[in-house]
Amino acid sequence: MSRGDPDFDPEAPEQSEIGREMVDQSTGLGSVAAHLYRGEVERVTTWRGRLDETTNWAVTVMAAILVYAFSSDGTSHAILLVGMLVMVVFLGIEARRYQGYDVWRSRARLLQENLFANALDPSGGVERPRWRAELSEDYRNPSIKMPYSEALGRRLRRVYVPLLTIMLVSWLFRIAAYHPGQTWRQAAALPGIPGPVVVGVVVLCVGLATGLAIWPRERRAKGEVSERNYGEWKERR
């Protein structure tokens, strides 16, 4: 199976459908692939835990900021703007970790759909005839498969849109309810920064986040469970 072996054809049935051999007879490659899959799943679980840690920290910090912001009338609404900025920082960290998580998940999915699915039902064949060559190349030259913009959009839709929405609504309530007798321009102002400028920056940031979350793009994440995938599966059933 070396790169320079002229006899290796990754699209040949005996090469791509080793899952069938795992059921019909015991093969050394099948045994190695099983241990390999166990290791890949463990790495997927580890990286998933890192994602959850970032989300937990984001929620904890958000809760602390909300408690402090509404603890007294004299607290500046700027603390909520700082909280939004902190959420954006956590989003950037989590998107980077999501790219790493996708590396291991894509390998696990490649084994699932081409090796184990073929072992359970050989009549279905394999999804990718060159899957062994693709996996081999990925081990020789590992690389990030998901663009950073897609990772940002995914984590925004799944986690950070709700968190940022809570912070935004809290900020609007803070400047509307805690400054009686003032206009929104006066209530939103910060030392040295007029209220319209503050509101304009917030609206711009919200628009950018919304556009990034809903902008249509080609999906590169492999094997992710979604409502669309589940609907397609039900139709096939």
Rank of each mutant, 00 (worst) to 15 (best):
D121F: 02
V203K: 05
L91E: 03
P216V: 09
M146C: 08
D102A: 13
S71M: 08
W47Q: 12
F116D: 03
R43D: 09
L152N: 02
E235C: 04
E11H: 05
P6T: 05
L163S: 06
T46Q: 13
M87P: 01
E137N: 12
S136V: 03
F173L: 15
G231Q: 15
R50A: 12
G4Q: 14
R128H: 08
L66D: 08
M146D: 01
R154E: 13
V67T: 14
V126C: 07
G125P: 02
C205W: 10
M62W: 00
G181K: 06
G207V: 10
D5V: 04
A33L: 14
G125M: 04
Y160G: 05
Y230C: 15
V198H: 00
R220E: 01
Y230E: 15
R237T: 11
Y230R: 15
N229M: 15
V103A: 00
Y101T: 00
F90Q: 06
R157A: 13
G28W: 03
G39Q: 04
I144T: 11
G30C: 07
E11W: 04
G125Y: 04
W104R: 08
R3N: 13
P162G: 03
R219V: 11
T75F: 10
A151E: 05
M1T: 01
R38T: 11
A209R: 07
A12D: 10
V197L: 12
